[in-house]
Design a protein around this nucleic acid. Structure first.
Lengths: 230, 230
DNA sequence: CGTCAGTTTGACACGAATCAAAGTGAGTGG
DNA sequence: CCACTCACTTTGATTCGTGTCAAACTGACG
C-alpha cells in the first residue's frame, strides 16, 4: 500500500500546468533514446518501463525498472543529455514536465523539490542494491533477488490488494538485468521454478513464494518510510 | 578543472552555520556504519572515501568512491537509516549538516536544494555506469574502466594541474569494486601494467595512459556540465 | 504455412574462483 | 638491530560457474 503524501493546492496547480498530455506507448516501444537532448522530466503514472545502457557492440545492461510514481529523465533534466535509454514493458502513461521550469519548481515549490531529491535518493538506494547483487551474488541468488525485488515493488503500487501480481518481463530482460547470458538465465530460472518459488508463463513471471526468494538471496527487502508522488 | 558555482552571501551563511567541525579520519577508519541511524548529511571537503555494502557472509561490494565536493549520507538524511557503510581511503575532512534542517534548506535556499538534486542525479549516473561495467564488461575492460573513471574524477578535483595523480586504493578495493576475486584482479591489473597503461606502487595506482584505458573499456568518459559545491 | 520472438536443452569451452604458497615492505616489540 | 607479524601483492595448479554454440520446441501472428 503506497503512502501518497497530500499536495497543497498550489502544488497541484503547478503540477497540472505541466501535464502536457499522455504518451501511450505500445509494449516494447522505445520511449526515450540515449543521447537525445531531452528537455523533459517525466513521472510514470501507470505501466512498467525500464532504463538501460548499451556498449558499442550491443551488450545491454538494464539498470532499473520503473513503476508508477517513479521519476524518469531526472539526469537529463538536471545534467544534460540522457545517459541511458528507456523502454516500456506495458502501455505507459507519463506526466511530462518541462525541464526549463525546474528552477521555478525548486524556487516556488520547495516541497516538490524535496520530493525530487527524495526520489533520486531512493533510486540511488535501488541501484546500490543492484550493484551488490550483480557484483557479489551467484546467478541463482541474483535471480531470486531480482524477482523478489520486482514483486515487492509491484505490490507497493498495486491498486487493489487482492489482484494477482504478474511481472511483465521476458527472460531476456532478466538476463540483461543480472548480467548473465540468456541460456544460463533460463537454466537458473528453471531451478527457481523447480523449487516452487516462481512460475513462468507467457513471457511473464509470477512469484509464488517471495519469502523463499528473499531468503535464498539473503535480501532483507526494502525499508521505505514515506512516499511522495509527483 | 572543476567549475564551482558562486554562492550567494545568504547561502554561504547558511552553509557555515552547519559546519559543526572537522572529522579527521585516519586511513581505513570506518566513518559511518551501515544501519546506523545517522542524523547528518555530509559533504566531503578533502580526501578520498568509498561507500560499500556487504552480504551476511562477508562478501563486500564497493558502490562508489567519494571525492571532494561529493555528498555523503543523503539517503540517510532523506529516507532514514544509512543503507551502506563508508570508509576513508585517506585523511578526510567533512562538512556536517543536520538532517532536521533539510526542510529549511529546501524552503529557504532553493539553489542549494537544486544542487542536492543535481549531486544525487550525478551519483545516479555514476552508478549507472558501474552497473553497465560490472554487468556486461569483461574483467580486463572493467578494470580499465574503473581506473580511467577514478583518474578522471581525481583530475577534476585536483587543485594544482601539474601534480601527479595517484589513486589511493589497494587491489582489494579494485576487486571489491569490480566484483572479482583478489587473485584474478591481480592478474588482470598485471596485464594492464604489462601493456604500459598503469603502474602499481605502494598500494596506490598511477594511470599512465588514460586514453588507452578508455579505449580498452569502450568508455567515452564523463560529460559534466556545471558543478556545484555545497 | 512460414516466420519470428521467446523458451528449453545438451555439449563443450573458457573465464574467473579457489586453493596453495611464497614474496614484499612497513611496523612492532624484544 | 633483529625477529616477528601483518597487510598486501604475486604466481601456479586446479576447479567450477557461466558463456557459447547448436538445435529444437512453443505459441502468436500474418
Amino acid at each position: 500500500m503506497p503512502q501518497f503524501r497530500a499536495f497543497t493546492p498550489e502544488e497541484l496547480k503547478f503540477i497540472a500546468s505541466f501535464k502536457i498530455g499522455e504518451l501511450n506507448a505500445e509494449t516494447g516501444t522505445v520511449v526515450l533514446q540515449e543521447g537525445a537532448h531531452n528537455a523533459h522530466l517525466y513521472t510514470l503514472l501507470s505501466g512498467w518501463a525500464f532504463r538501460y545502457k548499451t556498449l558499442e557492440d550491443g551488450r545491454r545492461q538494464i539498470l532499473n525498472y520503473m513503476l508508477p510514481g517513479d521519476l524518469l529523465g531526472l539526469q537529463g533534466s538536471v545534467i544534460g543529455d540522457m545517459e541511458h535509454s528507456v523502454e516500456a514493458l506495458s502501455p505507459v502513461v507519463l506526466c511530462v514536465f518541462r525541464r526549463d521550469k525546474l528552477d521555478e519548481l525548486f524556487r516556488n515549490h520547495p516541497g516538490l523539490g524535496f520530493d525530487i531529491a527524495w526520489l533520486a535518493s531512493r533510486e540511488e538506494r535501488m541501484l546500490d542494491e543492484h550493484l551488490l547483487s550483480i557484483g557479489r551474488r551467484s546467478a541463482l541468488e541474483r535471480a531470486a533477488y531480482l524477482l523478489a525485488f520486482l514483486h515487492k515493488r509491484a505490490e507497493a503500487v498495486q491498486a487493489s490488494k487482492g489482484e494477482l501480481i504478474v511481472l511483465p518481463i521476458s527472460q531476456l530482460h532478466v538476463a540483461d538485468t543480472l548480467g548473465l547470458s540468456i541460456v544460463h538465465t533460463n537454466k537458473t530460472l528453471r531451478k527457481l521454478a523447480d523449487r516452487g518459488l516462481i512460475r513462468w508463463l507467457d513471457r511473464t513471471c509470477r512469484v509464488l513464494d517471495v519469502a523463499g526468494l528473499m531468503e535464498l538471496a539473503g535480501w532483507e527487502g526494502p525499508s521505505e518510510r514515506r512516499r511522495p508522488l509527483i
